[in-house]
Design a protein around this nucleic acid. Structure first.
Length: 274
DNA sequence: CATTACCTGCAA
DNA sequence: TTGCAGGTAATG
């Protein structure tokens, strides 16, 4: 489910409600949801800590703690991080409950059990995040880093956009949407791009993510923000999961192919393979 | 590079 | 019943 825009929506929803709150108790209902450390130690080290910051890097949500450690959350396919009043009905797929002082609790719920929580000291956090490429919505440095990588990489564009080491935060939906906006075929090879096309791709990535955040994220199946609201961006998708429907620009039917094992949607006319 | 594994539910 | 799903790490 969640790609960068969805994680950013969760972060924004959560921040004002959890900042400065202390963890009263922690309950692990599905141990494998905890990537590290082992569940009993996870509970022990998290209990009693105060949340001092709510950040995001790529698709990781980062809850900073007064111990200097960070609780990193990756929602993978179906994870949700929900803020609920203590005692509220648990989400049917509740895996970890983090009760905060002040009458609220964080419920980590995850139907498919792919999502992971990491409690990490600074050096381990750095190791985890150092594998990520630039933040697409950030700095000028990120832009240059991405363009430089595009100049040296080979192979199809779609897998490149999904590679978190190339650029952080894109998943299957926004990779398709960004390629459409850039007018580039998903199988187009990186080494054949002109400089103008590289810039167009980077800017398309930014526009795609920015628009999705403004629409509250994409709720195709399971995405829900921390406060239980759904996003609206699914109403604005241009090509993703629209096989057979007319291209919003030229009316040609959208096609579906498989690239890197993932369903891939594009307009054969607006995104020609030269 | 493609395939498999990790999981569950839904629609065709 | 089969195939598919927004992610990623670990395999051939």
């Amino acid at each position: 489910m969640p790609e960068l825009p969805e994680v950013e929506i969760v972060r924004r929803d959560l921040e004002p409600h959890v900042l400065g709150r202390r963890v009263g108790s922690v309950e692990v209902l599905w141990e494998r949801s905890i990537a590290t450390p082992a569940a009993p130690e996870f509970v022990c080290r998290l209990t009693g800590r105060v949340i001092t910051g709510v950040d995001r890097r790529g698709k990781f949500l980062l809850l900073r703690l007064d111990s200097g450690e960070t609780l990193a959350v990756h929602l993978r396919m179906t994870g949700r991080l929900l803020l609920r009043p203590v005692g509220a009905a648990p989400d049917p797929y509740l895996r970890v409950r983090i009760v905060l002082e002040g009458g609220v609790e964080l419920q980590f719920a995850d139907q498919r059990k792919f999502g992971r929580l990491y409690l990490l000291e600074p050096s381990a956090l750095e190791a985890l995040l150092s594998r990520l490429g630039p933040e697409p919505l950030d700095t000028q440095a990120g832009r240059e880093q991405f363009l430089a990588l595009l100049r040296r990489r080979r192979g199809a564009l779609k897998p490149l956009l999904l590679d978190q080491a190339a650029i952080a935060g894109l998943g299957n939906i926004y990779a398709d949407e960004a390629l459409f906006r850039a007018g580039l075929h998903p199988l187009r090879r990186a080494e054949t791009l002109t400089e103008e096309e590289r810039v167009r791709l980077y800017e398309a990535v930014q526009e795609t993510l920015q628009a999705a955040i403004e629409h509250g994220g994409t709720s195709i199946a399971t995405f829900m923000s921390a406060l239980g609201t759904y996003g609206r961006n699914q109403e604005y998708l241009l090509v993703h999961r629209r096989a057979g429907k007319p291209c919003p620009r030229c009316g040609t039917p959208i096609e579906r192919i498989v690239v890197g094992g993932r369903g891939t949607f594009f307009c054969p006319r607006c995104q020609p393979l030269p």
